[in-house]
Simulated scan of single mutants.
Amino acid sequence: MRDWDDAYANGAYIPDAGGFVPRWQAEAAAFRREVAGSARLDIAYGAGPRARLDLFLPEGAPRGLCVLVHGGYWKAFDKSVWSHLAAGARARGWAVALPSYPLAPEARLSQITAAVAEAITVAAGLVPGPLRLAGHSAGGHLVARMVCAETPLPEAVAARVEHVLSLSGVHDLRPLLATQMNATLGLTLAEARAESPALAEPLAGTRLTAWVGAQERPEFRRQSALIANAWAGFDTETRLVEAPGRHHFDVIADLALPGSDLTRAFAGA
């Protein structure tokens, strides 16, 4: 029997794992101060205290909208920890939205999916042009869920999505049923199946990049390869990237760099 708790345990296998969150928080706060004149913070997209998004505007007219959805196993963090990761796409001329969303156990995973769709829809109403979605870990699951055939996005918004970047995403939720964290998530088998992008058909024309660190836990590498392969059988364009030397916590770092390969995957050439 596989130890699924160990399979999804990242911090235990990352040196100085405890130091990452304080650094992210400090870098995010510094970025917000730096771009304060062009940032719109805490835009409400629905009811509830977590139904808020931040929007960082570029200099000049935006090329379109990039949306970055945070991770945390659907039960931790909020938008304020990740502001600095908007820097790369913003420097390339994109407006960048970062939403918070309701967390388990107060919200079921299907409700979290719906909330992220609401956030994207509201942000899309503020910025014209194409949409590019990215998410890390649980956020990778959530952005992939937006381009499933049964998308929670309105048709007009879904039609604007030109690329999805799932960073270390969890795309088949069924293994989580055997983890201790499911005491918080409260997933049932039916919900796990319904909310798993790898078990769904993608929208026609979907372009998806599954990006994962080469030094990540084997389960995250498997999950990324799974969706890239499963969706390749449809009218899609999929790509799998294993970033050399990167683990689950630093695989996102290059989003802050305008010229990085990761930022180009998010915001285009």
Rank of each mutant, 00 (worst) to 15 (best):
Y8F: 01
Y8E: 01
G11I: 13
A12V: 04
I14Y: 15
P15C: 02
F20L: 14
R23N: 07
Q25G: 14
A29T: 07
A29R: 09
A30S: 14
F31V: 10
R32A: 10
R33H: 07
L41A: 06
A44E: 13
R52Y: 00
D54E: 11
L55T: 00
F56P: 01
G60Y: 10
G60D: 04
G60V: 05
P62R: 06
G64P: 00
F77R: 15
K79S: 04
K79I: 00
S80P: 08
V81W: 00
A89E: 02
A91E: 08
G93R: 05
V96A: 08
L98G: 04
Y101H: 14
A104G: 11
A107I: 11
L109Q: 10
A114M: 12
L126V: 04
P130E: 04
P130W: 04
R132M: 04
S137C: 09
H141V: 06
L142V: 09
E150C: 15
T151C: 14
L153T: 02
P154N: 10
A159I: 13
R160S: 11
S166Y: 00
S166G: 08
R174F: 00
L177C: 14
A178N: 10
A183W: 09
A183D: 06
A198N: 13
E201K: 10
E201D: 08
P202I: 01
L208D: 00
R217N: 12
R217C: 10
F220N: 05
S224D: 06
S224V: 15
A225V: 12
A225N: 07
A230L: 09
T238M: 08
P244G: 11
G245M: 11
R246L: 15
V251H: 13
I252T: 01
P258F: 07
G259N: 08
S260Q: 12
T263C: 02
